[in-house]
Structures are given as structure tokens and as C-alpha cells.
Amino acid sequence: MPHIIVENLVKTFQIAQRQPGVWGALRGVLHRNYRQITALDGISFTIESGELIGYIGPNGAGKSTTVKVLSGILVPDTGRCEILGRVPWKERISHVAHIGVVFGQRTQLWWDLPVIESFDLLRDIYRVDHHQYAQTRDEMIAILDLESLLDIPVRQLSLGQRMRCDLAAALIHRPSILFLDEPTIGLDIVSKLAVRDFIKRLNQERDVTVILTTHDLDDIEALCTRVMVIGQGQILSDGPLENLRARVTTERRLIVDLEGTEDITDPDASVVLRDGHRVHLTFDPDRVATADLIARITAQHPVRDLFVENTPIEEIISRLYAENR
């Protein structure tokens, strides 16, 4: 039985059109024109227990609408959704007791309260029993290294410290599903790695299902076994990162550092970038064996160094969007 079942979810919004100028604003009070926007245009997927899923898409693609529907905030127009056997928007209160949500841009802690007091308050909100609470809290404090932050009011924390506290806060009630909305946004590299490491441990050691929306594709590469790409309200691609690569392009990159600055010409490869001694070539491994191409180039040119790379994920995603435009 999958943890999350989503079938044909549709959500449209009515957006009031504002007319320009004072006169327009006045007229808008009496009569408004509405424009309909389809945020979700029939999306379907299932997620099994313990998956770690990257959910990506450009702004306005329907990412946050999906998260809002799955977390019980929004009611969709049509479609089915069941999470741990519950319909999120029909049983909001029992549903949200079993999920955790972290917004990178917004804290769910109390601004003026010391961190530990926020945890205590959440204990009462989620009705966690004292014994379990003490255990979870102490574990979180140890893993996320929060000991020195506990007595500081949230408003005085740095972004990275705050994010660690937010993660702990979202897990006080031991949810089996965790939604993370841009958890690494704005973080310095050390904090970013700490957060990533924590998410990975949570998923592997506690079997928490994680749905991660992000713009940081390094997060996806580091963490996710499966990637769902959404664009214009539809799921454009769903599967392991490798499949996404293969679907969009099988191309690879060959990066060559030459002794000189001459051009490279080869019938099976094309130059995409030239940077001093360094040349970036793309080629299709189905048409030419990587070893053959390397042999040909090293035979024709004095080469200092070379390496082969997969097409960067940014490029794959942008091609996928371009295809679906």
C-alpha cells in the first residue's frame, strides 16, 4: 500500500484582474473581471514508504500548490488524493498530525521565544506524550547539534541555525512523511551540507518519506532517488535521475585541456564552449564509443588532461521545459 496516492488532481484559481489607475481601482470594487489559472492540470503519482523524492519545477509551475493540497491546506477542484489512508483536506486535523512541513523561507517557530520553548509548545499542540517527547527532543538536539542554541530567541538565530531548529521542530511529533520546501535556500555551504546530511539520515535510518521541493539541483543530485518534474501544472517526468537524463538526452560531455589553443574538429562531437586551453565537446555515446573519440582527439592534439561528464542537470531540466512549451 503506497504512502501517497494522487490521481488526476486539478486545481484552478480565480485571479481578480486589477484595472490600472484610481478609477480602475474604484470600478474594481463594484465589478471584477476574473482570470482563471490552472495551477494543477491533472497530476497523478504514487509514493511508497521511505522514498526520497525531488519535486522540481520553475516558479508558478504548480509545485507549492501540490504541496499545499497534499498537506491539507488547499482543497482541489477535482481528483483523488490519499495519504496514509486519509484524504488531506477532509480530515485536516488527523492528517497534519502525521506529517511534517518545513518552509525554508518561513519559520514555524515563535519569533520571540527561546528555541526550547517553541519545542515545548509544539509538544502540546501535537499532544505528544512526555516520555516520547523527551526522547525525540534529545535525539534531535544531539543529531542537529542544537544544545548551544536552545536558550536563544529565534529572532537572534542565523539562517542556518534557524533551519536546523525548524527541522527539529517539524519532527517533534515523529511524522512519517516530511515535506521540505526549499530547505537549503540561502544557507552557507557548511549549513547546506549539514541539512542535506540530516535529511539523508532521517530517510535512511528512520524510514521517513521525504518530498523535497528545491531550486538547488545539487540537493537533488545528492539526495534523491526519484525526481518528479512539474511544468504548467503537469508532471513532465517522473523516475530515477538517470532515466530523466536518458529521456532528455543521452549526450555526454568531453572536456579537454589542450597544450595549445587550436580548434578541435571531429565528425562525431561538437564544441559547445571554449575557454582558453579548455574545450567542452558534446557527443552521443550511441554514435561513437567514448574510448574511440578520446583516442582520435589525443592522436590529433597534444592533450594535457581530459574528462567525461554527464550533461549538467540544469541543462536537462531546461531542455525538458523547452520541449513542453
Binding site: 491539507g72 485536516r92 486535523i93 518552509f103 518561513r106 499532544r127
Partner: peptide
């Protein structure tokens, strides 16, 4: 500001 969403994410009225 969207802070109301946060209240809906908690299992209380």
C-alpha cells in the same frame, strides 16, 4: 503574508 497556512498545518482548530 501566507502565515495563516502555518496554522492550517497544525492539528488544532
Amino acid at each position: 503574508s501566507g502565515d495563516f497556512d502555518r496554522l492550517l498545518l497544525r492539528p488544532r482548530s
